[in-house]
Simulated assay, not measured.
Amino acid sequence: MSYPKNSWYVAATRDEMGEVANDFLARRILDTPVVLFRLSDGSVAALEDRCAHRPYPLSAGHREDDLVVCGYHGCTYDATGRCVRVPSQDTPPLGAQVRAFPVVERGPFVWVWIGTPGGERLRPPPSTPWLQGDGWSSVGERRDVAANLLLLHEHYLDLTNVFAMHAEMVPPGIEALPPLEEVEVSELSVSYVRELPKAPLAPWEAQVSGLDSVESFGRKETGTFVTPGLHKQTYTISGADGPELELVRTHAFTPESAGATHVFLQISWRGTAVSPEAGEQLAAVFHEMADRDTAVLETVQRCLDEDPPSRRYVNVKADRAAVRARRIIVSMVEEERGI
């Protein structure tokens, strides 16, 4: 196991689930088949996507209101996972049940707990107020990346790759990112802060912000490993009177397996003179970035899969935050294994 199970992970977006009772959404999460569906009261239910009678996906069946009917023999389940009907006999077998997973819907995300039953009460889903109003607007997308959860966290905790991978994002005149001087570590999170020198706007910054591209602005960048399932990065462009444009790039990382991850990306923004087309512009810019990130991460995963177990790679100063996040994830996995 290369990821902790005792953590909240995003199973789907609100848009994927729809606003009313709908069909099934099947997704593999933490090597577990899960079927999600919205109930008539508006809440979302999540069940293990296997019939208790035979190994057949419940998502291949159909709904009867808030009941799930297996498409193999017709065994029927309620939203708690309890089998309430077996067509071939009067009453269901004692203990016929599939696991129901705790679900929390907050902002654009539907969070699910696949870990130890009851553990969800001790560790609530992370708060994401920037995704829920207060002057913020957001656009998002979902993609599957054939790379391990750890690789994704490490990638986004070290943005020094921007010069090699995303040169068009760099403000004119900035040739290197300042070193990470502030890395804050708690028991379960890691964050860093980086201040950039004043510089004119890059074309994409001018396009989105509506600011004068001739002036120079300061920038502040932060990155936070919030939980194994969530990474937050902020980017603030400031003028003489304070912040002019605030951006938050939110990545919800949900392991599908040891070598594959569901990525739920949200780009949020607010500013003083933001372009009316900012959402469309930001979506295009960060989609292209994500395409390149995905290609590199999947290549790194393939190389790791091909490498002998003895192969080792070195760390550099820019890896300070990434190394600490890795330690947290490894510690959580070892704790779950009882090591």
Rank of each mutant, 00 (worst) to 15 (best):
Y3F: 15
K5S: 03
N6L: 03
D15Q: 13
D15F: 14
E19G: 06
A21C: 02
I29V: 12
T32P: 04
F37S: 07
V44G: 02
S59N: 10
G71Y: 12
Y72M: 04
C75H: 11
Q89F: 12
Q89A: 10
G107F: 02
T116S: 09
R121M: 08
P129A: 06
G135D: 06
W136I: 06
W136D: 01
G140V: 04
E141V: 11
R142A: 12
V145P: 06
L149Y: 07
L157G: 11
F163H: 12
M165W: 05
V183D: 12
S186R: 07
E187P: 01
Y192N: 03
E195Y: 11
P200S: 10
P200T: 08
E205C: 05
E215N: 13
S216E: 15
G223N: 03
H231S: 08
T236Q: 13
G239Y: 12
G242V: 05
L245K: 10
T250R: 10
A252S: 15
T254V: 10
A260Y: 00
Q266T: 14
I267L: 13
W269S: 01
R270G: 09
T272M: 07
S275C: 07
G279D: 09
A290L: 09
A290G: 12
T294P: 06
R311S: 10
K317H: 14
I329N: 05
I329V: 15
R337E: 13
I339G: 09
